[in-house]
Write a protein that binds this DNA or RNA. Structure first.
Lengths: 200, 200
DNA sequence: CATCGACTTGGACGGGTGTCCAACTCGACG
DNA sequence: CGTCGAGTTGGACACCCGTCCAAGTCGATG
């Protein structure tokens, strides 16, 4: 019955939703279950969010923002292209490994949204966000290290996402972090092999 | 009311389930909806399958079997290692592109099963199947072309799955087949770069 | 032709779902 | 200190879910 600022409720509910989705999957993350996980009555959910779908959208937006920031930091002071590319990929995995729930929830929600009329755009939005984010890194690499590629930049960016998506999917199932790191190392090698010329 | 052999009902229901899952997602693929899609009363579902979960298991098993056969055929008469590796990857995509519903359903069910107590083992089973299947191809490459790798065979196999999973995830969202083929071509190059020595 | 067991299925069971309303509570402002 | 509107929430609404039973219906077998 105590009054809580709407922003705090929102944060609590989003955190609770993340936990529930990671534990039981989106399909079981109902408004009742999420509200209970947050220690609130069910009706509070709809006082904060317009709908269940709207909440999922906010969840995903928040995750993407935090993820991009984490990777950008991991790569801040890379001195060589190899450090830059490897640092970005391994930094991404560091974050995923540190908070698996976030990665699980993201994949789950994206998969779930594909077939949902209300959330159909979410999956596409996520990839647009990713593509833009990775394209930014590729551009940064070109600028900082004077790299030229043997294939279009867009293909380089796409290949990076193939690596992260593929590694994530497998890692979420077997949780073999060492193997995931080896796969990313091979990916880094493949990426560097796409360099045509480079200036220090 | 007409009598139908149980095997036929089973096949009809599995085909209907595939359609519904591809169209509306696993979460909406209820026994009622699937039975209706197959033109049967709801109760027929449980005359054929012990449970909803058991049906999903059969669905996945059938898909994996067909998929492995298709890729094996695509690679039958490869003359060079490059043809072999590229053929396997592009052959896999050929099949996925020819029948997107199958790939969609597979990914959806695997994602859904992760959090389901009844189906928890399914995701792991799928990857075991894949890993064994790809390991077979790697071994075949070693034998047919006298290949030796710079990394353990298991890592090569894992990298192949990273490529297919990553490409599939993106392709299912944007359906850009040309881009998917370019990404697989880059993957093939990366794979061939892992070869240490080779004998004709 | 009678019988019997495999096949078929309408309908019920107990449960879960997203959403929303009407009634309540309370803190701040006039 | 009274009022008023924002905050809170129990409970209802209409719906969908997996599962299963009991009552029917048929085709083959004796």
């Amino acid at each position: 019955m105590q009054r809580i600022a709407v922003a705090d409720r929102r944060a609590s509910l989003l955190a609770a939703a993340l936990r529930v989705i990671a534990r039981d999957g989106v399909a079981r993350a109902s408004t009742r279950v999420i509200a209970a996980e947050a220690g609130m009555p069910t009706a509070s959910f709809h006082y904060v969010f317009a709908s269940h779908a709207a909440m999922l959208e906010e969840l995903v937006a928040g995750i993407l923002e935090a993820q991009a920031a984490a990777v950008a930091e991991a790569v801040g002071e890379a001195g060589t292209l190899h450090e830059f590319a490897g640092g970005a990929l391994q930094g991404w995995l560091d974050r995923a490994a540190a908070e698996p729930a976030v990665e699980i929830a993201l994949q789950d929600v994206v998969a779930f949204s594909r077939a949902s009329p209300d959330l159909h755009h979410l999956a596409a939005t996520v990839y647009e966000h990713y593509a833009a984010s990775v394209a930014g890194f590729v551009a940064a690499a070109e600028e900082r290290f004077g790299v030229r590629w043997t294939v279009p930049s867009a293909d380089v960016a796409r290949f990076v996402l193939v690596l992260t998506d593929g590694v994530a999917a497998r890692w979420l199932v077997d949780r073999d972090e060492a193997a995931a790191r080896r796969a990313l190392a091979l990916g880094t090698r493949a990426l560097l092999a796409l360099v045509q010329e480079q200036r220090p």
